[in-house]
Design a protein around this nucleic acid. Sequence first.
DNA 1: GTCTATAGTTAGATAGAC
DNA 2: GTCTATCTAACTATAGAC
Lengths: 189, 189
Amino acid sequence: MATKQHLLAHAEDLARRQGYDGFSFADLAAGAGIRKASVHHHFPTKAALSTELVELYAKRSMATLRNADGKASGARLAAVLALYRTALDGGRSQCLCVAFGAVIDRLPDVTRAAVAAYQADMLSWLEQVFSDAAQDGGISNPAAPAQEAAATFALLEGSQLMARAAADPSQFDLATAPLRARIQTGGTS
Amino acid sequence: MATKQHLLAHAEDLARRQGYDGFSFADLAAGAGIRKASVHHHFPTKAALSTELVELYAKRSMATLRNADGKASGARLAAVLALYRTALDGGRSQCLCVAFGAVIDRLPDVTRAAVAAYQADMLSWLEQVFSDAAQDGGISNPAAPAQEAAATFALLEGSQLMARAAADPSQFDLATAPLRARIQTGGTS
DNA sequence: GTCTATAGTTAGATAGAC
DNA sequence: GTCTATCTAACTATAGAC
């Protein structure tokens, strides 16, 4: 079981940095100190491995966000900003669904479905945040929640992409500054 | 020369949809009706081909934007929104630098530099738009131009990513709606 | 400018021994 | 659960004939 966890961790790291076509069973085998054939014992196909990767990533991400449930809308928006800032890892990495989303056409059907599900969950969670913001005033200038959720999700993914291409993680902070500025620290506006 | 143009066009299409590791000399050869070795006559290496691809893409994109130079800030912002909406091609494709940016670690050095240059040009152009907006009032609620430029670029790239992962191009419009709503059609506010 | 032929490497996946 | 061995296919790239 420890081997499987090690394989998953290494696979996630490689997949996030190099993309779906950028990691192989050989890479994972080398990382775990076993042979390629042994990796297939834990994950029959790359499709199965990738799907499990996305599902675990989604579960972990949503669990992190749900820790903030109950807090005011501004605090929850700050939480999702922190989640993506952390995932950037100083420019070393990015969200798994940025890496996989960019090559969505290349993914096995099951993996593509897992990416879409992750995205739908995120959007739904964000929509609730902006819906609550209209009540508690925790975020200034609120537009329609569905628009705000989509715009926020796109901004977070795009900011990671931009920061990494520029090899400058501070670009993430620059791009998200206007959104962060909308968080009302004083509670009800 | 016609063959080279055909190879470039096919390569761009594949690269944007499938990513750097998702297209091959074999694909290009098949598309042009020639052999793999013949493709190497036009482009010695994949690094050279990819770099030329990015440079041509950047040149074409910037030329499109410069057509709007001289117009008011709001019209120029609308132009860049249209550029990315068009590049999405109904969900069929995406900006070349979204595809390549997501696997920036995998790119040859020269190609990575070309992607970074494209991004720097775009950010510089956007910064001027928001800088002018502070004067002509063509965009409401203007924050610092460098922040606005970064946020806009990230939003455009992220919106493409999101729309394609959701297999729903209207998600691009949803995500960009709040930004579009800031364009003041009446000229000076 | 295109071809055949091929080198050298890597990929995902399987069979069957231990 | 890990191994050796192997398969088939794909990859980038080159040499040299036409």
